[in-house]
Each structure stands twice: as C-alpha cells, then as structure tokens.
Design a protein around this nucleic acid. Structure first.
Lengths: 250, 250
DNA sequence: TTCAGGCATTGATTCAGGTCAACTCTGCCC
DNA sequence: GGGCAGAGTTGACCTGAATCAATGCCTGAA
C-alpha cells in the first residue's frame, strides 16, 4: 500500500519514444494528451527535442510526488489522471489549492523549493523534465513560454475565484460552486459530475469540514437540486437553481 | 469627489517621452520604476518601442479603473502607488484578491473580459497598453514574455498562500500573516508597517469583518506584539511571536 | 461468513466570528 | 468654534459551521 507520508516516484520511469501517432500536435509525447497539453504549442521538431529530455512516470493513487517545501528539481506535465495540490500548516490543517488533470503543468515555481505538495488521486501518468533542461527548452521554444503564460493566467483566474469562495461564500454556496466547476471540467452534457476525490478532499478544497460537506450534499439532495449516485458521482438535477445558489444571488 | 461606482480614467493620459534617465533599465518608461518593472527585462531598443505604444495615466484615490466583467481592452504596468484587486458577489459581498504596487502588471486575463476589478488606494500612476498592441509586443520581445511568466508564477504562489489563509487560518493567524506579508513588501527593517488601506479593505482581503479586524488588532496590541500608530501605520514589537502565530504553530 | 478499517452520514452541542448597536475619534467645511 | 460624515473601536448577543459522538455502509482479508 502506498505510504502517503513519503514522497517518491512509483512505477517505471523511462525514456519516451515517439511513434507515428505521437507526432500529431493533438497528442503529447507518448500518451495521447489533448489540446491543453504542452504539445499543442509545439511542432514535430519541437516534440522530437522534448522527447530527448522528458521522462514518463507512473504515479500510484495516494502517492505524494511533490513535497511542499522540498527542493524544486522537476517540472511536470500530466498526461492522464488527476492530482490534488495542497498546502499544510504545522498542526496538520490542510488546504487543497486545486486539482490538476490531463494536460496541466506543475512545478512552475520561481523559487528553488516547491510552494505546494502534489498527490495522485488516481493512477497518474506524467512527463517529467528536470528544471535545468526546462529552462533551456524555454529559450529554444518561445511557443512553449506562450503556452505556460496562458496556463498560468488561467490558473490565476481560477485562484481568484477560489479566494472569493473561501473568503466570502457560505457552505451551501461553496458546495454548489464546486459541483458546477467540476461539471465544467468534465464537459459532460448529461449533468453527471464525477468526483474522484473523497469528502475529506472536497472539505480541504472548500475550507469546510467533512461533516459540513456531507450535510450540505444531503441538503442539496433533499432540495432536489442533485441526485447522489454510487461510486463518487453526482447528477445535477436542477442546474438553474444550483447556479443561482452558487453565484450568491439567494 | 471621485465616484467609485463609475469606472473611468482620471488625469491626463499622454504619450510617453523618454529622457536620458529613463533609458536606464532600472527605470520604467517615464516614471522611475524599480527592478520589478517591465523594463528590467528589456533593453534600450525595447524600451523605445514600448514608449511608442504605452500611455501614462494618473488614477485618483478611490477610483475604479478596471471593472470586473467589463471588456478587457487594456493591459497595465503600475509605476507608482497601490491598487486593490477584487471580486464581488451580486449581493455586495467582496473579496480583495490582492494588492498590487509599483512594478506590477494587471490585465493578464486570457478571456476578453476582466475577471476582477481594480481600484486605486492612493494616487496611482500607470502605463497603459492596448491589449492588441501588447500581443504584438510579446511577439517582438521574448524577454517580456519571460518577465510576465515570472510575475504570474509569483502571483500564483501568493494566491496559494492566500487560499491557505482564507480556508484554514483563524482570525488571529490571518491578521498576523497579513502584517508580516505587508512588512516583507515594505522592506522596512525597523518593523514599521504602512497600511495604506482601510479596515474594510483589510477585512475584505482576509475574509473577515471590520469588527473582527479591529478587535484582533487591539488584542495583538494588548498582547504586546504590535504598537498601533497614528495615520495607518503599525509597528511590529515582537516579530518572533507574531511569526509563530502567523504560521499556525500555536 | 465474519471481521476490520476507512469512508460517509446524521445528531447534539459548542464556539469563533458575524451581526447589531453604541460610541469615539478625526478631519473637514462652514 | 460647531457640526457633520466617515473611519475605527468596543460591547452584547446570535448563528453558521466546527466539534464531538454514534452509527451505517462498503470492500478486502482471513
């Protein structure tokens, strides 16, 4: 069983080998990453050079692969799976600052120490670059820098939304906002929202306790706004009412 | 008197004229901005071209110059003064997502609408670029892009810290963290922390009410950790104890 | 099948911080 | 000086979410 307190890589890091399919700009390196990935900004030549420097890694669920405050040696591009990013206080209180999925970058820190930890929610595949190599790549591929800037800008907008949520929204508004955000992410028009994280993760993301998250979900169900399925999925039953609640119009 | 509900520029927008002093990389455009500014990443030629496209603007205290949700037409570099950045809910609840001072960039949004509002705390001078021009500049000056990426990364780290604060810290820990952050910003070794913002701004930044901010500052004073001076300044009297409090070690 | 352990739900109670209200302080205009 | 408005402080009380506690519900191991 993975020990979440240690911080190591699992699986079989290996050199990436490009095949025909991977030359398409809509696929990343070895692993079929979609348009959000690093490769959407690069051409075939770029990708060939990247392949020289990236290492594909498999991370098992529950395994922490970035340790908050640890030396920032690597840079990551997630190619499948979901990770949670978090910060912690000495007494154990935790705040999840975001969830990163396929195509997202990690480890952009300017400092030489990671400002946050990262842990795999499910089995995660990622491309790992040494930061030194990464710096050289940025010099060679201006498009890459453009991509990173775009990603960082998007994350800043998300962070500002989250600050509004954490600072000023009620528990009900927080949970409603969270469900809608997740639905946007899943791009599922049927209103089924996958929740690969535990109640504890949701609580740590929303600045609440697990009990409050649970009570609030039950309340949303009693009110007919959602239906709670088996196996960590929720169906949104009254989108409009949920949106009104999330925006704080009440 | 400025009307904070409308969103206009004050003063005398004008073309920027470079003089000898401004050619130095440690000064921005017209106005003596230090190393954090856009110019630290540019050489003389770059600066000369920038000067063609930037407009200097003076913003009066209390004036909102970026309206949340409004069309994102411009890009800004603050050359003096402090602004508050905020998001609001329909019923008036507000969250200040950050304070931006000399050298900071604003308006990096990927979307074509601003994701936050900005209002001058004191008299603010800034260099304004149209976003269309800005895009062309980024193509011409890769160094500029590097600078923006660095700035965005720093802001992301700050945002993550703020999420930890808003989601998991107590009122006392929040206020202590805030004072220490402000001191870092002011770079004043004597421990005098300038607070150009009102109690309401501090409250909206920390996710508290003005009453709680006031009570907490009074408590810190009674405990001997700070001394509250006249005219919006505070002296830190027991740095170590304040740091222990801020980090949540209690 | 049973048992153990993690996760989730629900109820009872507490408390940190919000709300409401009174008051002071300061600068400012007349 | 007097009066006024906005900012700040302090007290009394209330409430939303945390805390504490009990129970249910899976899943995997023996």
């Amino acid at each position: 069983m993975p020990d979440p307190t240690t911080c190591q890589f699992e699986g079989r890091p290996r050199r990436i080998v490009l095949t025909g399919a991977h030359r398409s700009p809509e696929y990343c390196l070895t692993c079929g990453v979609r348009s959000r990935s690093v490769c959407s900004a690069l051409d075939d030549g770029d990708i060939a050079r990247l392949a020289e420097t990236a290492v594909e890694t498999l991370v098992l669920p529950g395994r922490c692969f970035i340790e908050e405050g640890g030396p920032a040696t690597d840079f990551f591009n997630i190619t499948s799976g979901t990770v949670k990013l978090f910060k912690a206080l000495p007494d154990g209180r935790r705040q999840i600052t975001g969830f990163a999925g396929t195509g997202h970058f990690l480890g952009l820190a300017v400092s030489d120490h990671y400002a946050f930890g990262a842990e795999a929610l499910d089995t995660v595949r990622l491309c790992r670059f040494s930061r030194a190599r990464m710096r050289h790549l940025l010099d060679d591929f201006p498009r890459m820098e453009r991509r990173l800037l775009e990603e960082a800008s998007n994350e800043l907008v998300a962070a500002q939304n989250q600050m509004l949520l954490l600072g000023r929204k009620t528990a009900r508004e927080r949970v409603a906002s969270f469900l809608l955000d997740r639905m946007q992410d899943a791009l599922d028009p049927t209103g089924i929202v996958p929740l690969p994280m535990t109640r504890a993760d949701i609580a740590d993301y929303l600045g609440l306790t697990i009990e409050t998250v649970s009570r609030t979900l039950s309340w949303l169900r009693r009110e007919g706004m959602i239906a709670i399925g088996k196996g960590h999925a929720i169906r949104i039953a009254a989108m409009a009412r949920l949106e009104t609640l999330a925006s704080g119009d009440s």
